[in-house]
């Protein structure tokens, strides 16, 4: 259900975008070189579909690993920084300040230091995805659920594992949304990294298409990126729903 909704929502937005381009093309009488016709887009799609699909899968795999790494890190730091201690406050302040710095801006430094291989793409994807995730996890983990936690505190039963379990359980909806949303960030981070300097992935293919001024290829790439991301996010949401259903028997 969630998966279907994601896919048709993407279809609507994509078709609206293409329709807008075609409207511009025909109202301003632009050539096929600037904005290709539907037939050109279709033929380009047939030509590059297999290659671009493999590129998108390559990008997605890096994004998924990057997202997992940033999720693990965000939970580790979020759980450590949830307490009202000086260390917790330090982590919160540091996270808020560091995330204000655009990670993309330091991407060239990472490419210079690590080269244009998979490690660089992975690192940039994880970094772009990490800070918004960290802020959400910190916010959730630092907020006491007083009406549940009170009993455990006054009876001396509260342990850090139980505290995290209570807060995670009470915020399952929020956590699922944040994790599904971070997939977009991880994908965007990977594509940006590929676009800047990598030698593989759909971002790299878009960069090549850009140099060729081939809008049809870019539109096909966007279509495949959007479809893949919609399916991935839909699957994440469905998994979140299954977890909620199993844990809370909703």
């Amino acid at each position: 259900m969630l998966l279907h909704r994601r896919i048709y929502q993407f279809f609507i937005i994509y078709l609206m975008g293409v329709a807008l381009l075609l409207l511009l093309k025909y109202s301003l009488n632009l050539s096929d070189y600037v904005i290709p016709s539907l037939i050109d887009i279709w033929h380009t799609g047939i030509d590059v579909f297999v290659r671009y699909f493999s590129d998108v899968m390559n990008t997605l795999s890096v994004a998924v690993v990057g997202q997992i790494v940033s999720l693990l890190l965000a939970f580790l730091i979020g759980i450590t920084g949830r307490q009202a201690t000086w260390f917790g406050s330090f982590i919160k302040v540091a996270a808020y300040n560091v995330q204000a710095y655009p990670i993309v801006a330091i991407a060239p430094i990472i490419f210079i230091l690590l080269g244009d291989g998979i490690a660089t793409r992975l690192l940039i994807a994880a970094m772009i995805c990490y800070f918004p995730l960290l802020l959400s996890v910190l916010g959730i983990m630092a907020e006491p659920i007083t009406e549940i936690e009170h009993f455990y505190k006054v009876t001396g039963r509260m342990r850090w594992q139980l505290e995290i379990k209570i807060r995670a359980f009470e915020n399952l909806n929020k956590l699922t949304t944040v994790i599904a949303g971070s997939a977009t960030l991880a994908m965007a981070g990977t594509i940006v990294a590929e676009f800047i300097a990598a030698n593989a992935g759909i971002g790299y293919s878009i960069r090549v298409a850009l140099y060729q001024s081939d809008l049809a290829k870019i539109l096909i790439a966007l279509f495949l990126i959007g479809m893949t991301l919609s399916v991935y996010q839909g699957l994440l949401e469905a998994t979140g729903y299954a977890v909620r259903k199993g844990w809370a028997r909703i």
């Binding site: 009406e147 549940i148 009170h150 009993f151 006054v154 009876t155 379990k165 359980f169 844990w247 809370a248």
Partner: peptide, 13 residues
């Protein structure tokens, strides 16, 4: 000495 109040909840799992 324990304090209990009427808005407390039990975990839902």
């Amino acid at each position: 000495l324990l304090y209990s109040y009427n808005l407390e909840r039990l975990p839902g799992w």
